[in-house]
Design a protein around this nucleic acid. Sequence first.
DNA 1: CGGCAAAAGCAAACGCGTTTGCTTTAGGCT
DNA 2: AGCCTAAAGCAAACGCGTTTGCTTTTGCCG
Lengths: 191, 191
Amino acid sequence: MTRPGGRSARVRDAVHEAVVELLAAGEIDATIPKIAERAGVNPTSIYRRWGSRDHLLLDAAVTRLRTTSPIPDTGSLRGDLLGWAEGVERAMRDRRGQIMLRALVATMAPDAEPVEYLRARGDDLQAALDKAAARGERVPTVDEVLDFVLAPLYLRVLFRRPVEPGTAARLVGRLLTALPAGPAPSAGRGG
Amino acid sequence: MTRPGGRSARVRDAVHEAVVELLAAGEIDATIPKIAERAGVNPTSIYRRWGSRDHLLLDAAVTRLRTTSPIPDTGSLRGDLLGWAEGVERAMRDRRGQIMLRALVATMAPDAEPVEYLRARGDDLQAALDKAAARGERVPTVDEVLDFVLAPLYLRVLFRRPVEPGTAARLVGRLLTALPAGPAPSAGRGG
DNA sequence: CGGCAAAAGCAAACGCGTTTGCTTTAGGCT
DNA sequence: AGCCTAAAGCAAACGCGTTTGCTTTTGCCG
């Protein structure tokens, strides 16, 4: 039996927010007691619920990502990709978004179980591409979208290079321009 | 006055190797005492020299990167980029290379001082492009190289998607194919 | 509205990572 | 070869993150 609402939910949200705020404030190695204090919560509650700092960070990062940049349904592939990519760009221009991306990457152990959220977002992307294909549009693969749009945005943040306004639009433009010419550089669906 | 060789160098190398081996073996949160034990070294030596686990990991990652995938001088831009990118691909297909990339990203605090090595590699890339331009070749910007080639390779590793053999060649092909058409999506030099 | 149990709070004990003062080793220069 | 000192080793003390047994709160279901 589990308790999704009430105090449990309040504690969860307070802890998540404390993580984001502390990390964004530069306390990159904030300990669990520090996070608990900031959240107004007992450290034991965190230990019992999340077990380790890494699990907590991963959970906080995924939870934040989940609320960011959904893929819209605009009626055209370009519109869908643009709406999504601009959401990603906005998140990547925000310090807290940057921090959480780094936390996500840092805590994804190389051989841990797959992050369910990432798989789901890959499916969303595939669905948008399928819709466009059904409309008769020429569509890229998921891998191409990730290569052309997501990877450059993320790499800028992870390597601390600036994300200029309009980057997302230029990257989507590149992807769609490249479409008629080149074959996919890698087969299969992405995560 | 400093001591570059002898015992100091042996300790440094042993510690670096211990870091790589432990992380690659899945001990992602190996503590300094564990690393010291593996290296056959006193923990105090690590604390005194590196100060913190993050500094050590960053140093180990950069040191390893430094020995990987230099930019060759083949006489053509395609050859230079291919040689370099295939070196990166090789590193990214190796578990230890994957681990160290993740460690690098994880320990690069958002507002810490720039990592000298990354700047230097950006300069190397720029130099290769300049040479090609001097030969009259049509050349991309550093940012375009990073977007088209490095970002997709790194993102695959960081998000634990497979790096298929030949990925580097396909990415370089894409970059050079896109050249005549599109303008650079972002100005400035890369890191 | 009453009761069961999940989850939070509390406090004390534990373990281990970290710091520190000192000693010993050995690199590099004359 | 011999001196000087940077750097490694050692050991003990310290501090704090973590664990654990128990109590208290409170969400949720009948």
